[in-house]
Design a binder for these strands. Structure first.
Length: 592
RNA sequence: GCGCUUGUAGCUCAACCGGAUAGAGCACCAGCCUUCUAAGCUGGGGGUCGCAGGUUCGAGCCCUGCCAAGCGCACCA
């Protein structure tokens, strides 16, 4: 309908250009909005206001010209001038009713669009280091990323969901070393665990696995392990050494490699990586998140991609050496300062593999590359964009979406999430406590760049405070009505219902139909603006209108004509709720 | 100190890429179950859109300054 009105308006404006009411060179963008107020008709347009200046006519007068030039259309009942120069359209109610037929015909395809057809788009999200289980912070990225990916797919894009696995680098070495040290404890060695090591219980479990499989094959004495290692930093109550925790752990990593030898070290390393990665995959899958690709950072190092990326930067003249390190001159490309890509000790920085990774993304031919990062990484954006430009690409291809942290609450009490305290909540714990549906809905209910307070108590509550159940309940109610219909021994005649749609004249019904008709626009806008929260907002609204309708009118009336028409309407509601919740990977219970 | 993000009802948040009288939920108050699930519905009070300027027909949205909060400013990831 919007498209039709746009066509009518542009026709009128072309006409006016020919009649020299409007200058021929004036550029117009016709935007049709749905009227908020029913008194303003169904649709509204403000072109007259924006064109007034170039036309050198008062807006209202110009609007009158446009209306006069507007071709007739049987769908448009009335056109009114209002306010400073708005053009309001009143559409034939019969046209609105058609959406019910459309929904019944298209079922799960209703709301899909083709704006993205033929375009490849990549969404990389979560990408947490495989050094421990996912926590609730990652959950938001997971829910947001997968909802966004689903939305993009719904509007036609060929979507590629990807998880970048940081399976190389110092953090992984720290994990491997932590595992090994826990293993040594298992073997009966005694020592003070490094303050910078990974202390989670899962590290012990991995150590246990290795111990059970290989016995004491990897054992070395604590004295041997710690000999000559720089002092650790520790608190007064633990002995009060004033050492350097970074130097301490780095020393231990080197020692682990020396004592174990490369093969054995890699074995321990891989055992940790594989176990944690399997756990993450399992966790995400249970959360309803599936990827097309798990991309390994290590692969970029072993297959020469990093070297290749650096040599491309070098030949483009963006690399230089200073103080023994290799620098990328990103400040020439919008970054605030230059960045090291190869450290003095010869090791690549994380940034170096990130450059290679984005080069790889570009080479795979995506029209759009979307990275979803935690908000704390925002400072990283300029350097990655700089890298893309240095590689000769348009940095507009990359969109970095930031996800703010969620603060966890249990009622009025804030839940501490510090890793140290050990009481941080994992995504798995969250799932178990509040369930997938509530968790996912809460995560995407708000704009991603907005902080959210996640109240565990609210998410689990089965009251009207909980928006998830509110929407699901609407769905369940429709199912319940259909069950009642069956129990009464009545049969629904969908075809008759379609023939009787004109019987739907109640204001509740008209409002509901209008909301149903908006669904495809909501999907398109949510996808285009990368804002799944618009969909959750819409679903709450649709549910609300349904509940209102439910309370105001009986569906299972004796008048079969009216009954069938109403049942067709509520079945359309059911379908749209299912489609919308489906995009968010939230279940649709038939009874609650 | 510099940069990014954000300031909307008591609380948590929306507002259709500049439009008409800024909307929901929660909380609070008053009502609705012999009728398809009350996890629901109806009504009510509640706002200088952080502050001050500017841009224009028109600003919560755009620009500038200030105030406040969060996050960044490594040869860490």
């Amino acid at each position: 309908m919007k498209q039709k009105l746009t066509a009518l308006l542009s026709h009128a404006i072309e006409n006016m250009k020919e009649n020299a009411i409007l200058p021929k060179d004036s550029v117009v963008q016709i935007i049709i909005e749905r009227s908020r107020d029913a008194a303003h008709g169904d649709f509204a347009c403000s072109v007259a206001l924006s064109l007034a200046k170039s036309a050198k006519l008062p807006p209202r007068q110009l609007a009158a010209h446009i209306v006069a030039a507007l071709p007739n259309d049987e769908m448009v009942l009335n056109v009114e001038l209002a306010g400073p120069g708005f053009i309001n359209f009143f559409v034939d109610p019969f046209a609105h009713l058609q959406v019910i037929k459309q929904i019944h015909e298209q079922t799960t395809a209703f709301g899909l669009s083709t704006v993205g057809v033929g375009k490849k788009i990549q969404v990389e999200f979560v990408s947490a280091n495989p050094t421990g289980p996912l926590h609730v912070g990652h959950g938001r990225g997971a829910a947001y990323g997968s909802a966004l990916a689903n939305l993009l797919q719904a509007v036609g894009y060929e979507v590629h969901r990807e998880y970048y696995v940081n399976d190389a680098g110092r953090q992984m070495d720290i994990l491997a070393t932590s595992v090994w040290l826990r293993y040594l404890e298992q073997c009966g060695e005694h020592f003070v665990f490094p303050s910078n090591g990974y202390r989670g219980e899962y590290v012990r479990e991995i150590a246990q696995q290795i111990w059970q499989a290989s016995g004491k094959d990897y054992q070395h004495s604590a004295a041997q392990v710690f000999a000559g290692i720089p002092l650790d930093e520790s608190k007064a109550e633990e002995g009060g050494q004033i050492g350097d925790k970074e130097a301490h752990i780095d020393g231990l990593i080197l020692r682990a490699k020396e004592l174990l030898g490369l093969d054995a070290y890699v074995h321990v390393f891989n055992e940790g990586l594989a176990t944690i990665l399997a756990d993450i995959k399992d966790d995400l899958l249970a959360f309803g998140v599936a990827y097309e690709c798990w991309f390994s950072e290590r692969q970029l190092l072993t297959d020469g991609s990093v070297e290749q990326a650096l040599s491309r930067l070098r030949s483009a003249g963006f690399l230089y050496e200073q103080e023994g390190a290799v620098w990328f001159a990103s400040s020439q490309l919008g970054d605030e300062k230059d960045r090291v890509v190869v450290r003095e000790n010869g090791q690549h920085t994380y940034f170096a593999s990130d450059i290679a990774y984005h080069m790889n993304k570009l080479d795979r031919g995506f029209e759009q590359i979307i990275d979803i990062w935690g908000a704390d990484h925002h400072g990283y954006i300029p350097r990655v964009k700089a890298a893309m430009r240095a590689l000769g690409a348009d940095d507009a291809k990359l969109t970095v979406l930031l996800v703010q942290f969620a603060t966890l609450w249990r009622g009025k009490e804030k839940v501490s999430m510090s890793t140290r305290s050990g009481e941080f909540v994992t995504l798995r714990q969250l799932r178990n406590e509040v369930g997938i549906d509530a968790a996912r809905f809460f995560y995407v209910m708000r704009r991603s760049d907005q902080h959210i307070d996640f109240d565990l108590k609210l998410a689990t509550s089965k009251t009207n405070e909980n928006p998830v159940f509110y929407v699901q309940y609407a769905y369940a109610r429709v199912c319940s009505v259909l069950r009642q219909l069956d129990e009464k021994g009545w049969v629904r005649d969908s075809e008759q219902g379609m023939a009787q749609l004109a019987r739907l004249t109640e204001t509740h019904e008209l409002a509901l139909i209008g909301t149903l008709a908006r669904y495809p626009e909501v999907i398109e806008r949510s996808a285009a603006q990368y804002e799944p929260h618009q969909l959750t907002q819409y679903l709450r609204e649709l549910a609300h209108e349904f509940h209102t309708y439910y309370n105001a009118h009986q569906f299972l009336v004796d008048d079969t004509m009216l009954r069938d028409a109403r049942l067709n309407l509520i079945c359309a509601v059911k379908q749209v709720l299912a489609n919308g919740l489906g995009l968010l990977t939230i279940s649709t219970p038939e009874s609650m």
